[in-house]
Design a protein around this nucleic acid. Structure first.
Length: 850
RNA sequence: GCCGGUGUGGCGGAAUAGGCAGACGCACCGCACUCAAAAUGCGGCGGAGCAAUCCAUACCGGUUCAAGUCCGGUCACCGGCACCA
């Protein structure tokens, strides 16, 4: 055995990273001679905290796929960039008096060097940054197209208002009714906001999912979020003369409607208050005021206890039986869904039931189930088994039939129609913040809102130094009158710029298009580039982006498709998702040092009591041994330290080996050592290399099997088992005490996507055709994946009694005969009645006796 | 409440399509090497039993020659939505 130098990952990794940079190894250009493969991972928000060990899980996974696909002959585009606008940067800038642009530049530099240290095969020549004016020029351009097509509009909106920061918050910035940042109460306030009409695309966004290769949970969550429901609108006339239209999915229960409810904000209520038909206006306006003051949290948290006020002096008239029924206002009916008004059927809706019980309203049964139901206790809501009763012309029908007949009747009589509704709301697109794309609109007193002419884009952020939000929740830009005051593009008169900026979701809604042609000054990307590279073949990202980023970007892309800007209707052909990397909770009992555990057991008697004490001290979190990493728990793992101590290849391998890729997994620094050992053993194989252009006889099957396994597992994202298979192969090779050059070469190619630096170095050291990046991926021969002799199990009544070595192609008869010939088996079945004998090819023989 | 998912050794996790449960790794134990330790190599490692063998994939039941896997029910945990009519 030759003596070989130590595995010096530091110099090896630096060397190859430099080589890839200098040779632009991963730069992709349009090449029609090869099939293209566009792999995409979510670009990070470059925070001040730097890279988290969670980031590389997704990046390494698609890096493995990208590297393998390149060896398979694909022209691979694997880009990276920065989603750099956003509140944290602005807050950091305010606190430390550094311009957000500078903060962003520093953070990007740090992230970039951290990513480069991991040897990810990104095409850095296509790097994009959402805060770059040459990038946000096109974000603004897309906004203008949306505006010109009637999909962007300004509207007085009920928004979240933080009473502490005195600023408007996005829904995602409100956590349990409190401001995410300062913890103050969040209330509702009317404010004029730019909106994007994503609801116009609700159907397209649902229906478009059908042809896509998205994992099921993403599809389910998107559909759920859009929340399409099929029902009917029913027009109730009122004693005040107006028509009150309601939306219902249960028009079959119309005969059971015993009252109506409208939201406190409903415009008919305003009208009736003004005209004086309401006889208890004080009570009604008091309720309205209280509802407006309530936060979302209060509204939903108290949902068990229904409140409301009956409108005295006005009654609704049920169109099927001309019965007069009372009308209430209550905040359990939302202004923003359906028509903001409902017909209440307490017998068959749990919320209506609760309300009716509280206000002593009649409960009329119109659907009867087959089993027992008790309307004294609860509403009967089962649509599958119900039959209509007490319901005039639909009595006796099933719920489904009754719905159909009722819709027909409503349509015929003009008293209603079929109607589809969505939970999805239009997208509030304004932020009263500095660090975002300025919304390119100008307000003229004479001409109204006018778009900034496209040739004036990008509309740059003015260079200011004070980023505090204004008194009235206005953007900091509003104070900069020299920027705000401008001229109307239409009449040339004095006008003012919009001072709100776009939300962070804007820049990330189209970045994958920019990667295709990142330096284009005349279009967001050239037609040629989009024709060739689009759509993204494989997009991996976190589940937390399913309903916002993923939906928003599909919306923009579908819009761009409809106006002929992009050539494909969907942006992403395939979407997968990785599980989060978690940390150990230092406050959980099982993670305490042994001596502390012992002390606690002594003090509290049992683990359960000890945990209860820990919960008392640290909060509910103490019950969970594995939690999200957080600064406050001190369990954040810094990737830089891991790379410094173990090397990038080990880090990559561990990230892929840690567990099922789609599931969350706890980081365990101790386990990394196994991956390091594996790479060191690969390195040390140098000492036992022998000549040979083939696999040795006993390794033919293991090699073919492993190549097949690794190839399939990479595509199926089963990285952990791909690595396990290679570890198993290495164990088999090591058992022989030698490795042929051919075996070594192929082992390195297989391992290259996971450990690119080490394998490149060894390829060069061994004098193979370096670099690996110019080699071909391995193929396997199905016939050689099976050994000529195999071991089968022999069962008697399903229990294994012995194992036999037989020829792989043994016939069923011969296998069974061999099994019976075995002395132990023969003894077991002697004197018994043989009922059945089975041979499962390559697996086992089962003899059933009685 | 609704939708989706998960439950397998001390731990992370394997187990095409119903066919030998626990691959691969961590931790741990023993041995070798060493003055010693680390590193490395070899062996062991679900539970009970001297053993043959029996028990074991959250729990209860079913289908089957055969169930971690399929069916019915229960429990627990995770993620999303949540007064959406």
């Amino acid at each position: 055995m030759k003596s070989i130098p130590k595995y010096d990952f530091k110099s090896i990794e630096a060397k190859w990273q430099r080589y890839w940079d200098e040779n632009s190894t991963f730069h992709a250009e349009i090449d029609h001679s090869k099939p293209k493969f566009y792999a995409l991972v979510e670009f990070p928000y470059p925070s001040a905290a730097g890279l988290h060990v969670g980031h590389p899980r997704s990046y390494t996974a698609l890096d493995v796929v990208a590297r393998k696909r390149r060896l398979c002959g694909y022209n691979v585009l694997y880009p990276m960039g920065w989603d750099a606008f956003g509140l944290p940067t602005e807050n950091f800038a305010m606190k430390n008096h550094i311009h957000p642009e500078v903060v962003t530049r520093d953070n990007v530099a740090r992230f970039k060097s951290q990513l480069k240290a991991l040897g990810l095969s990104f095409d850095w020549q296509r790097e994009v940054n959402t805060t770059d004016p040459s990038y946000y020029k096109w974000t603004q351009w897309i906004f203008l197209q949306l505006y010109k097509h009637g999909l962007a509009y300004k509207k007085e909106m009920n928004v979240n208002w933080c009473t502490g920061c005195k600023v408007v918050l996005a829904n995602e910035e409100v956590v349990n009714g409190k401001c995410e940042r300062c913890g103050s109460e969040v209330v509702h306030k009317d404010k004029s906001q730019w909106m994007l009409k994503i609801t116009a695309y609700a159907d397209k966004l649902i229906d478009g999912l059908d042809g896509l290769d998205f994992i099921d949970r993403v599809v389910a969550q998107q559909k759920n979020w859009i929340g399409r429901s099929y029902g009917a609108e029913v027009n109730f006339s009122t004693t005040a003369g107006d028509t009150l239209t309601v939306y219902t999915t249960r028009c079959d229960t119309l005969f059971g409607a015993t009252y109506m409810v409208v939201s406190p904000e409903h415009e008919l209520v305003k009208k009736w208050l003004e005209s004086g038909v309401i006889q208890n206006p004080d009570e009604v306006t008091a309720y309205q005021a209280e509802a407006a003051r309530k936060s979302d949290f209060e509204r939903t948290e108290l949902n068990k206890d229904k409140t409301g006020v009956c409108l005295a002096g006005v009654r609704g008239i049920n169109p099927v039986n001309e019965q007069e029924i009372p009308i209430f206002i209550s905040d359990y009916v939302l202004a923003s869904y359906g028509t903001g008004a409902i017909m209440a059927v307490p017998a068959h809706d749990t919320r209506d039931y609760a309300f009716a019980k509280k206000f002593g309203l009649p409960i009329v049964e119109v659907v009867k189930g087959q089993g027992e139901s008790n309307l004294d206790k609860e509403a009967f809501t089962d649509v599958a088994t119900g039959t209509l009763v007490n319901s005039g012309f639909i009595t006796g029908l099933s719920v489904e039939e009754a719905k159909k007949k009722m819709v027909a009747w409503l349509t015929e009589t003009g008293k209603g129609c079929e109607k589809v509704n969505y939970k999805l709301r239009d997208w509030v697109f304004s932020r009263q913040r500095y660090w975002g794309e300025p919304i390119p609109m100008i307000s003229c007193e004479k001409c109204g809102w006018q778009p900034v002419p496209e040739d004036q884009l990008p509309l740059r952020l003015p260079d200011i130094t004070d980023f505090e939000p204004g008194e009235n929740g206005e953007s900091p830009l509003a104070r900069h009158t020299e920027w705000v005051n401008t001229t109307c593009p239409r009449c040339g008169g004095p006008a003012k710029r919009e001072t709100d900026t776009m939300p962070q979701w804007a820049g990330s809604s189209w970045y994958f298009l920019r990667y295709m042609d990142p330096h284009n000054e005349n279009a967001l990307a050239s037609k040629e580039a989009m024709d060739y590279w689009g759509p993204v073949d494989w997009y991996n990202g976190g589940m937390e982006h399913t309903t916002l980023h993923l939906l928003y970007s599909r919306f923009w892309h579908k819009f761009l498709y409809d106006i002929g800007v992009v050539p494909q209707p969907e942006p992403y052909a395939k979407r997968t998702s990785h599980g989060m990397i978690l940390g150990l909770n230092p406050h959980s009992f099982v993670n305490l040092p042994a001596y502390e555990q012992a002390a606690m057991l002594k003090e509290y008697g049992s683990e359960k009591a000890a945990t209860a004490a820990l919960v008392e001290k640290y909060g509910e979190m103490a019950e969970h041994p594995v939690v999200k990493m957080s600064k406050s728990l001190g369990n954040v793992v810094n990737p830089d330290e891991i790379v410094a101590e173990y090397g990038a290849d080990t880090m990559r391998l561990y990230e892929m080996f840690i567990g099922d890729f789609e599931k969350a997994a706890p980081w365990n620094t101790a386990s990394i050592r196994g991956c390091k050992r594996f790479l060191e053993r690969i390195w040390n194989l140098q000492g036992i290399v022998i000549d040979g252009d083939d696999y040795r006889k006993e390794l033919v099957t293991p090699f073919h099997q492993t190549i097949k396994k690794v190839t399939g597992d990479i595509e199926a994202m089963k990285f952990n088992t791909a690595i396990a298979a290679m570890m198993g192969l290495l164990n088999q090779i090591a058992d022989t005490g030698a490795i042929t050059r051919r075996e070594y070469r192929d082992l390195l190619i297989m391992l290259n996507p996971f450990a690119p630096h080490l394998t490149e170095e060894l390829f060069e050291l061994m004098g193979f055709e370096s670099p690996i990046t110019s080699q071909k991926w391995l193929s396997w021969d199905e016939a050689k994946c099976v050994e000529s002799t195999i071991q089968i199990a022999v069962q008697v009544n399903g229990k294994v009694r012995t194992r036999l070595d037989v020829a792989a192609d043994i016939s069923a008869e011969d296998a069974i005969a061999a099994a019976k010939g075995d002395a132990r088996v023969a003894a077991e079945i002697a004197g018994k009645n043989l009922v059945k004998e089975l041979y499962v090819k390559g697996k086992l023989v089962n003899l059933v006796v009685k």
